[in-house]
Write a protein that binds this DNA or RNA. Structure first.
Lengths: 116, 116
DNA sequence: CGGATACTTAAGTAACCGCTTGACTTTTTG
DNA sequence: CAAAAAGTCAAGCGGTTACTTAAGTATCCG
């Protein structure tokens, strides 16, 4: 759900603002020309994703970034990139000095190339 | 555009698969019950976002992850988290030993509290 | 050549998303 | 207390998205 929350430019802008410190909903809305209700909905999405935590104080709502949640998303990406890059490394070592192009590729021969 | 690409579970699954090595479109489609056309469309979205690069080889299309693009997304998150966390640190040092709750908060007094 | 394979394109559709408006609640302030 | 301020809720609307099916293109194999 976090990636969906990050998929919207306005929500990324809100997160950007919150990375510089907590804010109320109206304060978050100020840079935008959209209605307050729209921004509140964005905050709801961000809170549902866990990226932002909020707390009602009087008639205002304090919104803060959740660095733990941001870190979880970061890690998801990091793990996959690491996996891929270490694969590249191993491949590099394997091919050390050996040059060949247009050869059979592992991804192509992996699961039944042509005949079923 | 990258976050939008990551917002879909199937596309994240494809990226997951690709982190373990390149694959053809049909190979990517194999774990799913959806049509090949649907998966191809997902690959198109991933390629448009830059997260995946592809190359046509004969009648198959080789799909690979782009670690540079993944790293860019990772960095975007990292920067914001770092900013927020360093803010927390400064605040922690500022409050060292001093306990106060229910006080005026910076986020509330920041830009015109009540009167317009 | 001819059939099979691997995608590619296009059109149609149901569901979802972001936004608006308007009414309503709660809190603060003069 | 009454009015202003801040946020919440709900309905509705237009655009986008993910999916399907069907037809089309390019490549490979015998």
């Amino acid at each position: 759900m976090a990636f969906h929350a990050l998929a919207d430019a306005t929500r990324r802008g809100i997160l950007d603002r919150l990375s510089r410190g907590p804010a109320s909903v109206s304060e978050l809305a100020r840079p935008y020309s959209t209605s307050l209700a729209a921004i509140q909905q964005h905050v709801q999405v961000l809170e549902a994703s866990g990226l932002v935590v909020t707390e009602k104080r009087g008639r205002t709502r304090e919104c803060r970034i959740s660095s733990e949640a941001v870190e979880r998303v970061e890690s998801w990406l990091h793990e996959r990139r690491q996996l891929w890059e270490s694969r590249i490394d191993r491949l590099g070592k394997l091919l050390e000095g050996g040059e060949f192009e247009g050869e059979t590729e592992p991804w192509n021969s992996a699961a039944g190339g042509d005949h079923r």
